[in-house]
Amino acid sequence: MDEPDGQPAEDEAELVHGAPSALSRGQLVVFPERADYLDLVGLLYDDGYRVCVDLTGADYQPYMERELPAGVTRERFEVVVNLLATDTRRRIRVRVQVPEADPALPSIFQLHPGTEAMERETYDMFGVVFTGHPDLSRILMPDDWEGHPLRKDFGFGRIPVQFKGAPPAR
């Protein structure tokens, strides 16, 4: 298949603004430390990655052995940010490790105001707290909902199928 993202072939484990990077199926991925995350997004912003296309999370609780570049500590949560540079037509993905004990991450709302809803969604679904977010409330679930549904230890919520009021067996 053609390479849709127009990424040039880059060597693995090259540093992008001091953070380790890797190619995943030809797509450039950066793995900053949590402390460097805000700065990195800012530097990438100056590089032309002006559009934050997507921000979401992932819970790796039962899959901690996933492949990460050397030097990146595996943590339970990941926040995944997809950035786009419209003038060079390139994409980059930022994956930040967020520990379970302190699931907090600075908000990039100041740089990319469009992430407001996405960060709220990630908070709602994974319980990752974005510090500096103007209005961190639930967005998809009811306000009094308990738990964060997309966490792997949150039950699927399946209930057995019941046939109520069905005619009795003959």
Binding site: D2, P4, D5, G6, R89, H112, P113, G114
Partner: peptide, 25 residues
Amino acid sequence: LALGVTGPILRSTGMPWDLRRDQPY
């Protein structure tokens, strides 16, 4: 762009951004 808005709304502002042309799949 700051809000991440795409599609006809972005194109209505005069920016010719269409993934079919700019990042063809």
